[in-house]
Structures are given as structure tokens and as C-alpha cells.
């Protein structure tokens, strides 16, 4: 009753081979594009990449708690982005998104400042706020912070 059907087995093998080949091809392509697909550099990567002044790129990391300084009478903001290994000072003038808070993630788009200093500064023209996948009510957050 359970006769083997060679045709169907062959079709299955063809499909499996097709899927395997595709997965392999996609994997290789994505691997070779790895750097280009990343949306931003972390501070460590940015310092390592040694990009010239004026070259636009995105810098992403955590806004270092306590580092945000707002200038009086101007919209200029200074803060430090960190990936917990290296940190970089960022300057931005403009309106910040709602979720821009100390300790949260942020992505700054811009380039290295041209001012020749020993300390590198990132001049941002756009700031995006990043949030994580942990949602909780305020009370629960306060409780977690206490711990």
C-alpha cells in the first residue's frame, strides 16, 4: 500500500537543494555586506574606522548618564555617547526627540568636527532616540530601579 513514489522524493530533494543553495547564497551576500547593513557605528568602531572630517556617518550608543549639558539661550546640546567601552562627545543644535534621555540609546547622524583638537568631537545634525523591547508601567520601573 505504501508504495514509494520516486518522483515525489526527487521533487523534495530538488526543493531541499534549492532552499539550501539559496540560504547559502543569502548568507554569503549578507556576510559580505555586514558592515554596510549596520545602521550606525558604535563609538569603538567609529574611533577605529578613522574617518576623515566632513564624512557623514551615524554614531550610536547610550547617552552617558549625567553628561547632557544644555546651553543657555541656545538650542545647543552637548552629551557623551558611550558603548560602555569607549565614549565620544557629541554636539547638536536642534530639537531632541521625546525619548532622548540620559541612560537611553540614541543615534546621531553627522560627522567629525573640523576643529583640530586632540579630543575628537562629533557634530550631529540629526538625533534619533532608540528604545528597547522592555515595556513596563512606571510603578514597576521605579521598583526595578530601587533594586
Amino acid at each position: 500500500m505504501l508504495k514509494l513514489n520516486k518522483l515525489q522524493t526527487r521533487r523534495l530533494y530538488y526543493l531541499l537543494a534549492l532552499m539550501l543553495g539559496l540560504a547559502l547564497a543569502a548568507g554569503l551576500i549578507l556576510y559580505s555586506l555586514k558592515q554596510n547593513i549596520n545602521l550606525f557605528f558604535t563609538p569603538s568602531q567609529a574611533l577605529q574606522a578613522n574617518l576623515p572630517a566632513g564624512h557623514r556617518f551615524r554614531l550610536g550608543g547610550q547617552v552617558k548618564p549625567g553628561s547632557v549639558i544644555r546651553e543657555k539661550n541656545r538650542l545647543q546640546v552637548h552629551f557623551i555617547l558611550t558603548d560602555l567601552k569607549r565614549e565620544l562627545p557629541v554636539t547638536y543644535s536642534g530639537i531632541l526627540p521625546d525619548l532622548f534621555r540620559e541612560g537611553n540609546g540614541a543615534i546621531a547622524e553627522g560627522s567629525w568636527g573640523t576643529a583640530s583638537q586632540s579630543k575628537k568631537t562629533f557634530i550631529a545634525t540629526e538625533i534619533l532616540a532608540k528604545h528597547d523591547e522592555n515595556y513596563m508601567p512606571r510603578a514597576m520601573y521605579e521598583e526595578l530601579r530601587k533594586k
Partner: peptide, 20 residues
């Protein structure tokens, strides 16, 4: 796999979800 602006998955099948 990559640095993205989008956050990670909230619903997880194998691990406890990261949401109250």
C-alpha cells in the same frame, strides 16, 4: 545580527517575554 534603530523582539517563544 546588525545595529538597527528598531528594538529587539518583545514576544519570545522560548524565553520569558520582556514586557510586564
Amino acid at each position: 545580527w546588525w545595529n538597527t534603530l528598531h528594538q529587539g523582539s518583545t514576544l519570545r517563544l522560548l524565553a520569558p517575554s520582556l514586557i510586564a
